[in-house]
Nucleic acid binder design. Sequence first.
DNA 1: CATGAATGAGGCTTCATTCAT
DNA 2: CATGAATGAAGCCTCATTCAT
Lengths: 214, 214, 214, 214
Amino acid sequence: MEEANRTMDDLFVNGELTEKQRKIIIAAIETFSEKGFAATSTSEIAKKAGVAEGTIFKHFKTKKDLLISIITPIVSKMLAPFVIKDLYKVLDHQYEHYEDFLRAMIENRIAFVKNNTSLIKILIQEIPFHPELKELFVENIGKKTFERFCHLAEYYQKKGQIITIPPAAVVRHTISVILGYVAARYLIFPDKEWNDEQDIELTMQMLMRGLSAD
Amino acid sequence: MEEANRTMDDLFVNGELTEKQRKIIIAAIETFSEKGFAATSTSEIAKKAGVAEGTIFKHFKTKKDLLISIITPIVSKMLAPFVIKDLYKVLDHQYEHYEDFLRAMIENRIAFVKNNTSLIKILIQEIPFHPELKELFVENIGKKTFERFCHLAEYYQKKGQIITIPPAAVVRHTISVILGYVAARYLIFPDKEWNDEQDIELTMQMLMRGLSAD
Amino acid sequence: MEEANRTMDDLFVNGELTEKQRKIIIAAIETFSEKGFAATSTSEIAKKAGVAEGTIFKHFKTKKDLLISIITPIVSKMLAPFVIKDLYKVLDHQYEHYEDFLRAMIENRIAFVKNNTSLIKILIQEIPFHPELKELFVENIGKKTFERFCHLAEYYQKKGQIITIPPAAVVRHTISVILGYVAARYLIFPDKEWNDEQDIELTMQMLMRGLSAD
Amino acid sequence: MEEANRTMDDLFVNGELTEKQRKIIIAAIETFSEKGFAATSTSEIAKKAGVAEGTIFKHFKTKKDLLISIITPIVSKMLAPFVIKDLYKVLDHQYEHYEDFLRAMIENRIAFVKNNTSLIKILIQEIPFHPELKELFVENIGKKTFERFCHLAEYYQKKGQIITIPPAAVVRHTISVILGYVAARYLIFPDKEWNDEQDIELTMQMLMRGLSAD
DNA sequence: CATGAATGAGGCTTCATTCAT
DNA sequence: CATGAATGAAGCCTCATTCAT
């Protein structure tokens, strides 16, 4: 596990996981994200984790169970609560402008993606093939987060800062732009040379111009 | 095969494929996109194609060969030339405004995604795990297409229509917004109720405001 | 087919074999002797022979049939009759001494092995696994040839040239020595450097000393 | 496994082989020697060994691995050291005459062949098709053993007991005669009626007469 | 708790053989 | 006569999972 995935430890260390369980999960994350869930064998995970094959099944009834044990925390404990907390904070702090909020947001998201590359890759790869995961994701991110975000958008619309079109459209556009940048930067072409500060700045400009009232 | 994948037939029918080969490819596309490459068994494909398992291997040396035979055409024959031709057309027709170009573009892309949902899903899912595919993709789309797109952006910048920031940023932003919309609409939440015309209109507005000079 | 297997052509050309049949047989001999019967696929033979897979089965009902069609001639048409004719010649010509007979014999056998390396390899490899072949061989070589050889030995024993022990023992010993040399020279270590003339001379000496009366 | 292969147990029992591994090896030896390596299926071996097919591959990475695990011990642990030890013994004990040495030798070899018929059959059958095996064999037997044997021959030549021709020729001849007898007796016609004592005696006589000085 | 030998179902692939053209 | 597409049985091997130690 490289530097990049620092949060992972936070996710899986503090819990009531034993040392072996942690090793298994770490190994599984690494391998799943490299080769995909279906192409990863439990024996490979066992070897990489330094445990016996049987040990995996003592802790995770099934290979799929292991996948779910990996994905659930990101979705339900990390993404959702994270965002939600932030959103509350946002509403409390009352960022004066949508732009301020977005800047906080984008920083936040970038940090998250940076620290969880492997996990996010797994999430993206496996969601389409596992209905439970999809539901988990849609319910948490798709519904709760999206809804709150919409309220926020409305709030800034009422303040006259951003155009008054259906807030859902604002939100989707905002997410498109941010995720588009983050995905290109960290998932698709992580090895290209990037000028992070400038790129973010430009992206913010284009996004804000597109949304600002007037 | 549902309605949605109409272009597929264009891709795999006209060629010098025999009936059986076509059936195999169709079945493979369907299954790969539903369950993923690694989780699909050749026996399953054979059954769905109404063919003996051995027949698959008479036509495709390897299971992976089958995957490549499916993906190569979308990447090299469809996406790239498609876009490139369009870009030429664009330069010939001399769309007066970047917006006109974008509207043509977006329509074009939407049609393409609509008709090739399965293939695109496979492409997205499998690229991370197959270096050859990744290279194929990067070389064709990432390089050629992106470059031409940049030239276009510059052209409209010189005409004073869009902000003068590095054209690459303009292009990335444009792609983000378009792909973000298309992905959400056709790949991630195809079953949500959408108001296509309005959504596209709004997206275009936000995009154009973000990019227009002044 | 290299120089070494010249007789093969004699064996399979003159017969009523069509061109295709000959090509198939030549290809089969080459491959069988290189990789063994069981490890050779009919498709490989077809490719090497430049014919369609089906063509093989038009001419040889079965893969095994092809093997038998290859081996039978060496055993029944070549080895046996060859030897037998020679033996008659021997008895006619009335080689004065057993040694003269042996020298003729050894030359004869060496030429035979040299020209039929591939075929003999196949013969040796496959006989143990195919009872019909074994019987074919035992009947023709083991019985007929051996018997005649014994009569000859007796003949020279009566002439007082070789020791009077059971002729079968004389024959077996003679064959051991000759085959031992030939096998080492042409089958087992064909690539070692050999001093043919001297080696044969010495072998003959040791053999003759061992057998000569007194 | 019949009586005949008693030594096999010595070869494969004492090692650190588990019971299952032993069963697999025994079954493999039996089947390989009966039908040949290529014509033997792993499922057949499993069935005969009373083991699941997968178990074979837990212990031997590959079918070929199984073959090598069978052959290596005969070549490297049995033949070579056996002979070599004997040769030392020979030189220590200082057999007075080459004949004494040969008698010891022939007895020794016969016992070996008797107890390892199956293994030797496999060895002979498979060496031509597996370069690694060939090298293994040539290196151990062909080189080391042959060389030592030559020194011995020289030794008896100097003692004036056997003819002074190149020792290599003496050795090859000796081996021809002994192997010729042993092969005929135990491998080719094991079912013929043999008069062992007399046959050996006669063979020895012919061999010795052929080699003795004067 | 942990191990790893054992399992047998199933995966990919090859093969001898058939048959319509 | 020849072809080669098609077959399905069988081959080698991998895998998730179990269980006795």
